[in-house]
Design a protein around this nucleic acid. Sequence first.
DNA 1: TATTGTTATACTCTATAACTATA
DNA 2: TATAGTTATAGAGTATAACAATA
Lengths: 173, 173
Amino acid sequence: MTVSKTAEKSGDAAKGRKDVGDAQIHGHAEALQLGELSEQLGYVLKRAQLKVFENFIRCMASLQLTPAQFSVLLLVEKNPGRNQTEVASTLGILRPNFVALLDNLESRDLCARIRSTNDRRSHILVLTDKGKAVLSRAKKLVATKHESRLNELLEPANREALLQMLSKIANEF
Amino acid sequence: MTVSKTAEKSGDAAKGRKDVGDAQIHGHAEALQLGELSEQLGYVLKRAQLKVFENFIRCMASLQLTPAQFSVLLLVEKNPGRNQTEVASTLGILRPNFVALLDNLESRDLCARIRSTNDRRSHILVLTDKGKAVLSRAKKLVATKHESRLNELLEPANREALLQMLSKIANEF
DNA sequence: TATTGTTATACTCTATAACTATA
DNA sequence: TATAGTTATAGAGTATAACAATA
């Protein structure tokens, strides 16, 4: 919302000179001061989230899996036999919006809708063999390319603390 | 992307019973297992971010300020006299998308565009008196309603560590 | 009557190209 | 020629209402 994916240049910062004569003539080259913005949790959270998604998408380019698609595959693998409503609502996806997402995964033969015999209104979701194979490769990519990048930035203990705090916010805020 | 704003009920969890007979007949009532999803930084980050924005918007309802609008007011207050391109790009907002956002703030007399005398292509941005007053009230609302809520959840030291890790991710990932 | 999956639709955010006025 | 602000437009993501099939 506040933040886009490109446009990250952010100017070339003040080069340590005292006079601003150049800026007066040719325009300000100095980066703006973020001030209180850098203390705003929502702002920093949003920018961090965009960066992480961006990196995720880049790491998954060869498999063409978005974060949302990956989350569906993970959840269906862990909970085979659940219906669309259950899977969608667990992920916070509205049922109408889940249809196109599933159409995509199904058309790529990654997952399948099966009419439930108990309740013929329901579509039970399962991963196809190809879906399982792709998910397995996806997990490896996440581990070797995506998470490894994160581990360079944060200490393992910090990484765990970060996840725990974010979960707390997600669940209790 | 993976996550919507409503649809947060997430089922009423398993009630500690052993048999799943009821589920077999009337459908699964048990919550799905998140599994590896709860360890995915991107997933947790996104859900936390949505919760924080949701709360922010609720806290700001009386002033009708979105997170994006608040971030613009904060940045212009801290850096008066910069032009649209500078402010927008600092916030990661694309220039074309910044126009409507500014139109809105200007129509509410919160900020003003002033044609620069140095470079008549540029619009210098400043807060109006009303803009300063509204921003001041907004900051108080953020402190008393929004941040106070966060402080109930996290220890002050943890809050600072969280912000620092998120900044690191936002800037270096 | 209620629920599942679905369609249609609208609104917001984000992204790109191209115009205008200035430089 | 290049840049600032703007317009138009397209694409995601998200939201609500309503329908057919089934319970």
